Simulated assay, not measured.
Amino acid sequence: MPSTLEEALESLVVIFHKYSGKEGNKSTLSKREFKNLMQNEFTSEQKLSSKDIRKLMDELDVDQDQELNFQEYITFLGQVAIFCNDSLQAFL
């Protein structure tokens, strides 16, 4: 039986591949694929605008190939996790 952490990691990988490859390379997220992921998987009331998502993608796209590879995606998730941790610290 996988641990909670193992299940969480598997979910991160599965979500990446749920959106990658619909347009071209199955190992990367295009701008449209990343936008769809952001709009569908982050359900908070404060959604990012299309412009903000494009800006975020440009910042994450270290190799500037107009796509996010898995490492760039995980870097993004790490940044989100740090933000969540910082936000939760105020309540602990």
Rank of each mutant, 00 (worst) to 15 (best):
Q71D: 13
D63F: 11
Q71M: 10
L60I: 14
K26V: 12
S44I: 15
K55R: 14
K35D: 03
Q66Y: 10
K55M: 10
F70V: 03
N25V: 02
L48V: 14
Y73T: 01
T4D: 13
S50I: 13
N40L: 11
R32S: 12
S44F: 14
E10D: 08
I15M: 11
L37A: 07
R54S: 13
E10S: 13
N69H: 06
M38Y: 13
L9Q: 02
S30V: 06
S3K: 07
Y19E: 00
D65H: 14
A81Q: 08
K22P: 00
E7T: 06
N25S: 11
L56W: 11
M1F: 12
Q89E: 10
N69Q: 03
Q71F: 07
I82Q: 06
R32H: 12
S11N: 09
E33F: 01
F34I: 01
E45C: 06
A8G: 07
Y73D: 00
A8T: 09
A90T: 12
S11E: 09
D52Q: 14
T75F: 07
L9V: 13
E7F: 12
Q64G: 15
D58L: 13
V13F: 05
V13I: 14
S30Y: 01
S49P: 11
T43H: 08
E6G: 05
K26L: 04
G21M: 04
G21I: 05
R54T: 11
T75L: 12
D65N: 15
K18D: 01
F70Y: 09
E33R: 00
G24E: 01
E45M: 07
L88F: 08
A90E: 08
D61Y: 05
F91E: 04
V62Y: 10
R32G: 08
S49A: 07
S87R: 10
I82Y: 04
T4S: 11
Q79R: 07
E23T: 08
Q89V: 09
L68Q: 00
Q64I: 13
K35G: 05
D65S: 15
G24V: 01
K47C: 08
S87I: 11
R32V: 15
Q46Y: 10
G24C: 04
F91N: 06
E59D: 14
K47E: 11
Y19K: 00
K18W: 03
R54Q: 13
N25G: 02
E6Q: 15
R32P: 01
S27G: 12
